[in-house]
Design a protein around this nucleic acid. Structure first.
Lengths: 365, 365
DNA sequence: GTGAAAGCGCTAACAC
DNA sequence: GTGTTAGCGCTTTCAC
């Protein structure tokens, strides 16, 4: 890293102009083979790697797409652990240890989809998991570095989004299409939950399903909850008579909610057919944890359902009935929407809602 | 996006020089409040977002760190699905459907760690999951856009890495420290597996443990396998007499390997105490799938162990005994190593090995 | 097929 | 405190 070589260094060494160096890298065919070889030789010799920034600046295009998600506000305080100096490997009995729960399965899947699609279209991906107060600054910063930005709904103010959208295409993920000018990509949350809830009510004759909601600021949960209500309505069930709980989309939150339900006597062994409808899979898995520990049988005593379709739900005992939403596809669609707008800036606001499907498994057959 | 405003536009509108605009954004305190307000007002009015590229170019520093992992070569062919035009939500019975298996739990965790640490240090993160032949080009490209690069071991040629390392700090993830000049960050694979295998052999009296390896090109697997061999050696067991299989680090690969073992008669009900030691958790989970389907009891008939400590293993039935490696910390350490070198380029090659621990659960108590 | 030269939008001395 | 002025390292006409 002594002296980072530039086009000028390469040009000098290969006895050509910087324009030719640039050509060799961008459109090799426009250069005579002999010249090209000489340039490439110099590139190798010097260890030349073109500056993406200079290129982006000159070309007025970064070929990078940004992805913004809210991050964990915890996890951040501690410094990097220093390795234990001894080479000993401790052997511990797991009495319930669960590492740090991977709450972000959703994020992971979406990111994977975004990455795949970005790659296919020749874009790099820049990710940011903003936290705390710096969120807005982060979004602004990243917006200055990319050609387009995908943002999870309700993670940044509409003002900022509007500001940023004047510079680059912005697509909002998982937000219901609203009365704004952004592009939206989301899953069929409402219809999905409605279909599932109706199934539970009709097929299993449950008249008092319990809904465990997600965080109040989750647009996904808002839509799912509404879908649940619709199902109740069309079955002629009055919502005010029902028990309800709120989780936080985490397995731990699901456990806590389930404990409260059990303590409140809402869930019992053989106490008539009950159903717990959870706003997402993680919550439902937490519920399953508690029910199993309490000896309450699923699905015999209580039916349990989730939402999302994460892999863990397909492998749980009992396996989890859920509404599968195409998370990877969401990520891909987001990137797709951005590139589409990049290709044709005159496009009107797009709203894409991806289909979901109810997947019946053991926890609610 | 009509006309993207620049410093010049802001300067003109607020009646100051571009230098002052820059100051307002970088060091607000160096500007008189009244002037500052005027500039910020113009920023808001114009929808100005500073160009990260121009800034990086001028400042000779991007404040971005790159992360390179190998991607799935599959998944890429299909185009984005078009939403079904009907609003109907299909209800399907899951007869074994598992969505697309999240194989990359490892990647996800490391990425999370990297993201956290990058954020703490004021860096953005650029990720690339290279595939196929374009890998090298991708790495080169991304190297031109970042201040430092973390690369999973053995995903790109040492030549390229050396080339890139002349420009920016490069840290190799999960590779055993080798005789190169790169920084390395890895987990205690060998000692971890050795400890686990010894435990299985000594505690449970297993004399013929079966090892299911990972991909041949995985440095992690190489080290783990060697750890396994060491355990055999110190127990006086001859390796050549043992059955061995190779998976590919995926659950599906684990299933396939287990099927072969069952077919080969290596695993039977009550056929003496056997143990299947897997190179990673996903493989082990696949083995559990097969054993359960075959009615072979774990841990009564067969002991099963994994490696990594992914969340899914803590929730499987039976819960999976494993060696937990700090994946999030690996990501953090990688970023840390890069920033350390950025702060002090004179540093010699660093090699950090993070501690692991054996976690005993039901599958091998 | 190749070179000269004009930016791209910003930061950072250096003056005033 | 604020303005002037060089670049930063590339791409891209436009000549030749």
């Amino acid at each position: 890293m002594a002296k980072i070589p530039t086009v000028y260094d390469v040009a000098e060494r290969s006895q050509v102009s910087i324009a030719t160096v640039s050509r060799v890298l961008r459109s090799p065919d426009a250069v005579r083979e002999q010249t090209r070889e000489r340039v490439l030789e110099a590139v190798r010799f010097l260890g030349y790697v073109p500056s993406g920034n200079a290129r982006a600046l000159a070309a007025r295009r970064t070929n990078v797409i940004g992805l913004f998600f809210p991050g964990h506000d915890d996890l951040d305080a501690a410094d990097v652990v220093e390795p234990s100096s001894t080479g000993d490997v401790p052997v511990v009995v797991d009495d319930g240890f669960v590492g740090q729960e991977t709450e972000n399965l959703y994020f992971d899947e979406v990111l994977r989809g975004a990455e795949i699609e970005a790659w296919r279209r020749g874009f790099a991906l820049m990710v940011a998991a903003g936290r705390g107060a710096s969120r807005e600054a982060l979004v602004n910063d990243i917006a200055g570095r990319v050609d387009g930005l995908a943002v999870l709904a309700r993670t940044v103010s509409d003002d900022l989004l509007a500001h940023v959208a004047r510079r680059i295409p912005v697509v909002v993920l998982a937000g219901s299409e609203r009365d704004d000018d952004f592009d939206h990509v989301s899953a069929s949350n409402g219809p999905g939950m409605r279909t599932l809830a109706s199934y539970v009510i009709e097929k299993h004759g449950v008249r008092e399903p319990i809904y465990i909601a997600g965080p109040t600021d989750s647009p996904d949960d808002t839509e799912r909850h509404e879908g649940f209500r619709e199902a109740l309505r069309s079955a002629g069930i009055a919502e005010q008579d029902l028990v309800a709980e709120r989780g936080d989309f985490t397995r731990e939150g699901g456990r806590a909610a389930a404990e409260r339900l059990v303590a409140g006597g809402a869930l019992t062994v053989g106490g008539g057919r009950h159903a717990v409808i959870c706003a997402n899979d993680q919550t439902a898995l937490g519920v399953l944890d508690v029910l199993e520990a309490r000896g309450i049988r699923v699905p015999d005593d209580v039916l349990v359902t989730g939402f999302d379709g994460i892999a863990a739900g397909a492998h749980s005992r009992p396996r989890l009935t859920t509404v599968h939403q195409p998370m990877v596809e969401l990520g891909r669609a987001a990137v797709h929407a951005i590139t589409a707008r990049l290709d044709d800036p005159t496009l009107g606001p797009q709203s894409l809602t991806l289909p979901v499907r109810v997947v019946l498994r053991d926890s609610c057959p």
